[in-house]
Design a binder for these strands. Structure first.
Lengths: 344, 344
DNA sequence: CTGAAAGCGCTTACAG
DNA sequence: CTGAAAGCGCTTACAG
């Protein structure tokens, strides 16, 4: 009858197969079954095989929550990135996954949307899962985030930038140097009134801007009037708009350093719509070297950043810390490459 | 001494604050403390406040693993997407997160890389976390994946396509109809020898191709010679290459239906490099309407797909299933929009 | 190489 | 509205 179904005890429902079920099936204790998974070399081959067969037959699926609770190792790595729509961070994620997959880690991904508040919230939430390690983007975490992480005593590695404080672990590149290098290239190419277009205004953009300024000041060509900084997220549309704004306030510009490739695409499209020849009348360069940059017309001069490797190396470094291995270096500088192409 | 430190018991080390600690601090039982979190309306306001204060003071962080184990609800949703580098899926992810964040779910993201094998592996791994629900991309899961999911009896929703089998839940759009519509548009525009450029060859691409064929056959304009299908992942570079191949085998083509925007960008760049005017000599259209498509020169004619909403609605549907609510519809068709722009 | 006992930190299902 | 008991499914730390 339907009614009696309603009163059924939880124990009557179909229950997942547990390690105890497997052990019973084979006629061993649960810890032998447990060991057959975690430390197979400690179990007689014959038994090991029987246990494996039983697991297969009974459709055993380990329960991560139980394992985490008992062992106090969650096998979870928490990763916080500022954006999903920026290809830079999905590349980083790919490297990270690849570095960590075979070790049985589960990657918990949080999107901070470039917000300190969101980051705090996410750290709090991720901490509930007792991650074995945490990977952060950038170095500009709020005090509260630092505190929470310090209190939890969980190994932490930061990505993209190079930490300068002792005790901090990080993998990335010097955003300042890259900005400087690209600007220096433009100067050497003969550009004299070089503008800067930056959006989002996150730490990396600001450091690239500093590199830009340093190079121009050194060459005696710096003018603050040629800097367009906008807090909105970087998009192609915004790049088009900001190039317009740059030309409105500084019509004599002969080049624009766009703080990422998306903005640069927009800037180039804007030039094309206005009949401004790139690079003849206006040099345009970007930052990051997204796949498209080599193919567009004109191809984009930009800085290639080792995003996949940043993710991979950050995860490798974190694994060492988790396992109590003292890493060779606490800061890994992966560098960058100037890609001189047609647009500047 | 260093030696005595080495022998310290696990219990001596700094231990995380538990619910019992909080309860003791306030002088109540652990379940009252537990209830203060999960069902605050069942706890006297005064007590509730004391407990909240104690949690704050002691820096209490709930242990998800313990909660999951005790309650047999993990508050985890498993999501499988085929790619991180395709903006389509990161948009879907954004919608999904937004639909699910405030409900306290943790989203476990798996990247199948368009591989059945990877998908099987990931389902197995994710099942270890006892997800309350699963979200899959597409309908072409392997038999083994279906079995695992069926055996686990976990609610499942699929994204992007429209399931036709009864009992399946899904949110998406008709890829066939969209392919048909776009091709019909090209015919109406006066194009007569329309090629097709497809990569990756996943289910969605193949369905768009079918729509393309149906429209052309109906109009008596179909020629298999004008179909270029390549199994490699879609990239701008590949788009450029495939347009070259299309023109090599079918130099009379007057338009190309590219099965996504990335390929279309490459195709347009290829035309630009070869001095082929778009759309005058060659119409080019894409699929998905990525942000850039409206801004490039020429702007791209394409199909706009409601990716964010697909993620959002799929998660909403899944939440209903998890909560035992019978959803109004098991299949939600979100449709698509033809964006007629400059390139065709 | 194998096992009996205890416990990880919560929540469920009762009672009161 | 509050609590004592039991248990979720594993692993740890001993023994043997």
């Amino acid at each position: 009858m339907a009614e009696s179904d309603g009163v059924e005890k939880r124990s009557r429902g179909r229950r997942r197969t547990t390690l105890a079920d497997v052990a019973r099936h084979v006629g061993v204790s649960s810890m032998t079954a447990s060991r057959a998974i975690t430390k197979p070399e400690l179990v007689t081959p014959a038994l090991r095989e029987q246990i494996a067969k039983a697991m297969e037959e009974l459709g055993y699926v380990p329960n991560r929550a139980a394992r985490a609770l008992a062992s106090s190792r969650s096998k979870v790595i928490s990763v916080l990135i500022p954006s999903f729509s920026n290809a830079v961070f999905t590349d980083v994620l790919a490297g990270l996954q690849d570095a960590v997959d075979k070790d049985g880690y589960q990657v918990l991904i949080g999107n901070t949307r470039y917000s300190d508040e969101e980051e705090e919230k996410l750290v709090g939430i991720h901490l509930q899962s007792n991650p074995d390690g945490v990977i952060l983007t950038g170095l500009a975490q709020s005090k509260r985030v630092r505190q929470m992480l310090a209190a939890s005593a969980i190994p932490t590695v930061s990505m993209m930038d190079l930490p300068s404080e002792p005790g901090q672990y990080g993998v990335g590149l010097s955003q300042f140097d890259a900005g400087y290098t690209l600007t220096r290239y433009l100067i050497d190419k003969g550009y004299r009134r070089i503008g800067f277009i930056g959006a989002q205004l996150d730490e990396r953009t600001l450091k690239r801007a500093e590199g830009y300024r340093a190079a121009l000041q050194e060459a005696g060509m710096y003018s603050p009037a040629r800097e367009i900084l906008d807090p909105h997220p970087s998009t192609v549309a915004l790049g088009a708009e900001l190039l317009g704004r740059l030309l409105a306030v500084a019509p004599d510009c002969d080049a624009a350093f766009c703080c990422n490739d998306d903005l640069a695409y927009g800037a180039i499209y804007q030039c094309q719509r206005r009949g401004i020849a790139v690079p003849a009348q206006m040099g345009i360069c970007g930052f990051n070297d997204l796949p498209q940059s080599a193919w567009m017309v004109p191809s984009l001069t930009t800085i290639s950043t080792p995003r996949y490797r940043v993710g991979f190396e950050a995860a490798s470094l974190l694994k060492q810390l988790i396992n109590g291995v003292q890493p060779a270096r606490s800061v890994i500088d992966l560098g960058f490459t100037l890609m001189a192409r047609e647009s500047a």
